[in-house]
């Protein structure tokens, strides 16, 4: 839809609207816009790029705005800088394994339930809608999904306490807020990622505390 608006604008000699997009099928997480006050427009499990104009009535007015969050500075028009999400992953959202020298894929059986749970969490497309929807600008769902995905797998358990501690510290350093259980994040998540992963994040954090892998947080400001 924005393509059409832009083509018209160009034809009329005006400046087109800058917006992020790439795959156009709801998987790359590039597109980001608040439509009528709701990130991605408020249709269940749908990204902006998958919104069809048939969902709106002829003559409807649409209000389109960029993601708004302290951790996502605006670059231009609808385009924001989500580099902080990458920084969260860099803080520990991985399993430290070298290329090569790993055991056979079937060496460690993983229960189907476990694999399904990991997949439910791993579906996150990293669009940042959860942050944009949160009144506190928190990234708890994003971090929770990654922590849960890796913590449930035997390969990821070795580093689980360090991971959760470091990712939570990074969340604070990057300017994300705290969760106060509004659950707006789950409502707008285009993959329907459940807030149960935030609960898992909290449990993993508690475990890390008990193991003395982390202490009270250093304040970043």
């Amino acid at each position: 839809m924005l393509d059409v608006v832009n083509e018209d604008l160009i034809r009329e000699g005006k400046e087109p609207i800058a917006f992020d997009h790439d795959c156009r099928e709801g998987i790359c997480g590039m597109c980001s816009a608040v439509i009528n006050g709701v990130p991605h427009g408020g249709f269940e499990r749908t990204t902006v790029c998958q919104l069809h104009m048939r969902k709106f009535k002829d003559g409807d007015t649409l209000y389109i705005e960029p993601w708004r969050a302290r951790a996502f500075p605006i670059l231009r028009d609808l385009v924001v800088d989500r580099g902080t999400l990458d920084r969260l992953i860099q803080a520990g959202g991985y399993i430290s394994c070298h290329t090569g020298g790993v055991p056979d894929g079937n060496a460690l059986p993983i229960s189907k339930g476990g694999a399904d749970y990991a997949m439910d969490a791993a579906q996150c497309i990293g669009c940042g809608a959860c942050v944009a929807a949160c009144p506190n600008g928190a990234a708890m769902l994003f971090v929770g999904a990654k922590v849960a995905h890796l913590a449930v797998l035997p390969q990821g358990q070795v580093e689980a306490p360090e991971r959760v501690a470091e990712m939570i510290q990074a969340m604070r350093d990057c300017g994300f807020g705290n969760c106060s259980n509004h659950y707006e994040c789950e409502a707008v998540c285009p993959k329907g990622i459940s807030v149960k992963f935030i609960a898992k994040l909290n449990r993993e954090f508690l475990k890390a505390l008990i193991l003395a892998k982390t202490g009270p947080f250093k304040s970043s400001d």
């Binding site: 394994c97 090569g100 790993v102 055991p103 894929g105 059986p109 189907k112 694999a115 990991a118």
Partner: peptide, 17 residues
């Protein structure tokens, strides 16, 4: 093998394979 080690959640059967 590499992807499994990284935590890629491939589909598994009921025996975990």
């Amino acid at each position: 093998d590499q992807c499994v080690a990284q935590g890629v959640p491939f589909a598994r059967d009921y025996g975990g394979h």
